[in-house]
């Protein structure tokens, strides 16, 4: 589904990604872990098409198409979803209205007819249940005055609405208490299927107790320096990142 080869990227004059290689197949959940500043969020941003980052080398193939050539909205329409680490507050735009526009622009891209108000509302009600989010929240201006947990839940609600093929969760666990973490994770797990894939970017192992990954990769200095299964995450939790850094410097 997603094939990243030797991906390099910089922001301003700072090189951050130094040759990432990653293969993701449908149905898989990959966790990207690593110490602060290792490039985890940069990788998520580059995949979603954030313009501040300049790709300086490498390739990303998504379902047979060159992902890096696409505008952010095209990537979303092709099935890439980024759950933001810091969801943006947009005064005056309600989640419902903006989701309706998003769903219909994506449907148009896929050659489907726009949803009428009734079908849209019906779809929304279903997805709301999935992530245990209240409609009153969705009637309000997007994320404005939302708590940290509400913002993240709204991200997962949007993921449910847009039914992406590849979801990238960027530090979705940051700022969540244990209840919110459970609700958000449950939502994500309900959206897991054999047809879609998920990249979970996180600093801590605790999210991976809820969203259990098939693979765990450790990013350090812009490279994947170690890959393994979920046991690797547990090992990192127990030992910290220093032993990885030591391994890298010895090698």
């Amino acid at each position: 589904m997603l094939s990243i080869k030797n991906l390099q990227a910089k922001i301003d004059d700072k090189q951050i990604l130094n040759g990432i290689n990653l293969e993701i197949k449908p149905g898989e959940v990959h966790a990207i872990m690593g110490p602060n500043g290792s490039g985890k969020s940069t990788l998520a941003s580059v995949l979603a098409g954030r313009e501040e980052y300049e790709v300086t080398g490498g390739e990303v193939d998504f379902l047979g198409k060159d992902l890096l050539e696409m505008a952010p909205e095209e990537r979303a329409r092709e099935g890439v979803f980024l759950a933001f680490q810091y969801p943006v507050e947009i005064p005056g735009v309600s989640t419902i209205n903006f989701m309706k526009t998003a769903v219909n622009q994506i449907r148009e891209h896929r050659g489907q007819q726009a949803l009428d108000a009734v079908s849209f509302l019906q779809m929304m009600k279903e997805k709301m249940k999935l992530v245990e989010i209240d409609q009153s929240l969705l009637n309000r201006a997007l994320n404005e005055g939302f708590s940290g947990g509400e913002k993240k839940r709204n991200e997962i609600f949007q993921m449910a609405m847009l039914e992406p093929k590849l979801a990238i969760l960027d530090e979705t666990d940051s700022g969540l208490d244990i209840d919110a973490l459970r609700i958000v994770s449950n939502g994500v797990n309900k959206l897991r299927s054999k047809n879609n894939a998920i990249i979970v970017v996180t600093h801590y192992q605790r999210l991976l107790n809820y969203i259990v990954p098939d693979y765990v990769h450790v990013l350090y200095k812009g490279k994947i320096v170690k890959s393994g299964t979920k046991e690797l995450a547990l090992e990192l939790e127990a030992k910290g990142y220093d032993w990885i850094k030591d391994e890298v410097s010895v090698a």
Binding site: E73, A76, I90, P91, V93, T101, A102, L162
Partner: peptide, 30 residues
């Protein structure tokens, strides 16, 4: 205009033009 907000809307599949119009219309809407 808040570029981060534009990117957020784009990341949901909304074209840049529509995202800008949405932001500006919301601004005027008040």
């Amino acid at each position: 205009i808040d570029e981060e907000a534009i990117f957020y809307l784009q990341a949901r599949g909304i074209s840049k033009e529509t995202a800008r119009a949405m932001m500006l219309y919301a601004f005027a809407g008040e």
